[in-house]
């Protein structure tokens, strides 16, 4: 049988997996930053209401960073599911 020349080229699922790994690394880095920020906010030698307000800002940022880390993990997982699905579809088409 002649090959179907209209079919899309086989997808580079390795690239998608590598991207998912990169997202996981970014998530870990964001999580580290969130922890470091929380520590800094708790230990900065500053007292008073202005200091409390600054600590509040710092904790809010730390929470946002932790949220961003979770979102990156979720994106990595979604990307890996997609890469597996694409790989399976391509294998089926090849068969």
């Amino acid at each position: 049988m002649r090959p179907d020349t209209t079919a899309p080229p086989p997808p580079d699922t390795d690239l998608l997996h590598a991207w998912a790994q990169a997202l996981r690394r970014t998530a870990a880095s964001l999580d580290d930053e969130a922890h470091a920020l929380r520590h800094m906010v708790d230990t900065v030698p500053w007292q008073g209401r202005a200091a409390d307000a600054a600590r509040g800002e710092g904790r809010r940022l730390a929470a946002q960073l932790a949220g961003a880390a979770d979102a990156h993990l979720a994106a990595a997982a979604a990307l890996e599911v997609h890469a597996l699905a694409v790989g399976a579809a391509a294998a089926e088409a090849a068969a």
């Binding site: 961003a68 979102a71 990156h72």
Partner: peptide, 8 residues
Amino acid sequence: ALVSAGES
């Protein structure tokens, strides 16, 4: 999921 990560 990627859009959500970017927005965060």
